[in-house]
Design a protein around this nucleic acid. Structure first.
Lengths: 216, 216
DNA sequence: GTCTATAGATGGATAGAC
DNA sequence: GTCTATCCATCTATAGAC
């Protein structure tokens, strides 16, 4: 529950704001945006009803602020890993290490003992349930993805550019499908053979699959 | 607008019910379940407000009926293609043809001049925004997927079973990511290089990628 | 069966006391 | 800044006229 962004040591304004932020993120991630009311959030956070509008302006503005912060953190971590891969390979990393920079951050956030586990579900959900504002930001704000696309094009200069874009699209689909409900379904289908907890194992499986797909 | 399920030639009870069904499916697919009210649906269908409750019982029951019919149609078409692949290969079709039976039906429904285009978006959306009833059905009703899993296991008996299940999960992620919003984003990212309209081309790209991933 | 009118419940936002 | 009380809009569902 201790959000790294704002301390919770006393009952200052920042503490109330952080409590609302955390409660909203969790409830939205678990139950969906439209299924959570401002009353639910303030009750969960143990603050009064007016707090959301006082600190964030509106319910939608609160949603958007959570969305912006979490996506910025995710993009930063991905960019850092891509930067490190570049440094290791004189600016031309192989496909597998580019994909690892794309896959690893959201997967590692999803580790069962991780507070950020809920943030991943929030981000994935915002992709389909977000406000028009959020969806517009998702559609037009592709600068972070462009760096991955460029790296993949450099790693596979023999492929047509649009082929690389489509394969990046497929990889993103693999990432976005890692929702609680889909894991549960897979668990039922495989009769318990698939263990959700093994994040590093799943990362390796995803990299094996996607790397082979890229080298086709 | 002419739904194949019910004729619209006159103002019978069935015609009203079909009009509500079609209007609801389109509005839900375009704007999300929670963002569409019974008033929106009846206004779009040109019928009175009480029609939804009279013909379907409730808003959620209407949702569930659309969901059940469309998923049943999709599963039937996939099963038919898998059956044909089995017939062509003495009951042991190769990975690529199994995956084609999984990918082709929803993709071909998505052709721009197809009335079923909207049905695919509805099904994809129900996966993340559905009612608890729908999500329970999605989680526990895996018999149609089990046939694909079994076929893939038979095609790749050298792989551990759980590896096949995970790779099937990855393939489903590729399918579920084919939403309008994601196509738009990819269009922006690739600066227009990816054309959404070429369904058969996209099917080939998906099969190339996933087949290679399976043969890793 | 179809439609109008309305009940009954809920939610977002805000005024105003402290 | 915090909190209570409340306004007002919107929604689902239904009763009852025709």
């Amino acid at each position: 529950m201790t959000d790294p962004v704002a301390p919770l040591e006393d009952n200052t304004e920042a503490a109330t704001k952080a409590a609302v932020f955390c409660a909203a993120e969790r409830l939205f991630a678990l139950h969906g945006f439209q299924n959570v009311s401002v009353r639910d959030i303030t009750a969960e956070a143990g603050v009064n009803l007016a707090s959301v509008n006082y600190h964030f302006g509106s319910k939608d503005a609160l949603l958007f602020e959570i969305f912006r912060r979490r996506t910025a953190e995710l993009n930063r971590e991905r960019a850092r890993m891509l930067h490190e891969a570049n440094a290791r390979h004189d600016g031309k990393p192989p496909v597998r290490e580019i994909l690892e920079a794309l896959f690893a951050p959201p997967l590692r956030w999803g580790t069962t003992d991780n507070d950020r586990r809920i943030s991943v579900q929030f981000i994935i959900r915002s992709r389909s349930e977000g406000t028009p504002e959020m969806r517009e930001a998702l559609t037009n704000d592709v600068s972070h993805l462009a760096r991955f696309a460029d790296a993949l094009i450099a790693a596979r200069p023999d492929l047509p550019r649009e082929t690389v874009y489509w394969r990046l699209h497929f990889c993103l689909g693999m990432v976005h499908n890692n929702r609680f409900a889909e894991f549960d379904r897979l668990h039922v289908l495989s009769d318990g053979a698939t263990r959700e907890g093994d994040v590093e194992g799943l990362l390796k499986r995803m990299l094996d699959f996607a790397e082979a797909g890229f080298l086709a």
